[in-house]
Design a binder for these strands. Structure first.
Lengths: 189, 189
DNA sequence: TGGCAGCGTTCGTCAAACCGAATTTAAGGA
DNA sequence: TCCTTAAATTCGGTTTGACGAACGCTGCCA
């Protein structure tokens, strides 16, 4: 609210890129997403190409199908280059050692971070092409085993491990054990 | 069902009431607002009555004329404490269903988010006084059991559960089982 | 090489959102 | 009470978004 209300970029372009990005992330094809959202794929095609001016109901259906809130599609993202590697950071404990915390990543002001939970099963590899330059992905493995990171140098994670890497190069997620779950923080300026 | 981020009530009704409320607050007549937004007052009338299905451009123009961000018109007010139980959030899966993700929280542009891992043991209570107004804490429990939240209304979490609450009131963390770990995202503007 | 299947774009058709004008409703003021 | 002014709601006409079908494209397999 205290922000700039008159977002410079036309909302339609923002919607176009947001739509493409989220569909990408969800690993859905245009056809599949259109079917799930209950809209014609031609409509979706035009929206992603920046042509058109969707109604609220149409956009809403897409948000539901993608599992993201409405505003996520209209508010513009922003990239910024920042990669933080952690995992070897010792957890600082309080006196009775019943509570400890370690800072994994300190966010830049102006950055935008979205919080996801992931569920993956072995047998498939989730590939992701480079998205917006400057985006960073943070992953904390909470169950199972996971191979994640850039295509050329993926990292194998045990439960509790943390990895972050730039999202602007092709990268992958591959579960190595059943019931693999992780927390994903996707950061884009 | 307080899923304010993923599947709120019908957007059209939210928009209708939001429009009326904001126009009220701004002290504008329907005619005046329509003129400023550059739309027909008949259109606005129908929108406020809940009839109709505005296009993005139309809604955008109204947001600008009212001096409020787009999202304020479509997102219903968020509760102070939000709990999402494991499995409660619809995880959007791709075809092979080896990969799925659900958005727990969408970050505001301009907000700052720090990423922590927590480890807690039973027997101690971690109290935290109010911090900076406007800060929000997000917690995903990854192991054990945890009691967390505002002092007067803490929430008991199972593994996989998610809770977010305002950090500007006194709150607490208390492990209910050995080996309790959690991911904490602290957000402040 | 040909055929098949899935993905994405382009093209007419139709319903609906948007608009401008007329109509109704509300509130004073003499 | 009647008249005047302004706000808000309906009422046809036009523009445009959404749909379905058809089309090109690509990768795969026999």
């Amino acid at each position: 609210m205290s922000e700039t209300e008159n977002t410079p970029a036309a909302p339609l372009e923002t919607i176009a890129s947001s739509l493409r990005r989220e569909r990408d992330r969800a690993g859905l094809t245009l056809t599949e997403l259109a079917k799930r959202a209950g809209i014609a794929k031609s409509t979706l095609s035009q929206l992603e190409s920046g042509t058109g001016n969707p109604s609220v109901e149409t956009l809403w259906a897409l948000g539901v199908a993608l599992g993201v809130p409405f505003s996520r599609l209209v508010d513009p993202p922003t990239p910024q280059v920042r990669v933080v590697r952690a995992g070897q950071v010792p957890i600082v404990r309080s006196e009775q050692s019943t509570y400890g915390a370690a800072l994994l990543s300190s966010g830049e002001s102006g950055a935008r971070r979205d919080l996801y939970v992931l569920e993956l099963e072995p047998g498939g590899v989730r590939h992701a092409d480079a998205h917006i330059p400057g985006s960073v992905e943070h992953v904390i493995l909470t169950a199972g085993r996971l191979l994640a990171g850039p295509e050329d140098s993926p990292v194998e994670l045990e439960v509790g491990d943390y990895v972050s890497f730039s999202g602007d190069v092709p990268h992958r997620y591959e579960a190595l054990a059943p019931g693999t779950t992780a927390v994903l923080v996707m950061e884009h300026r």
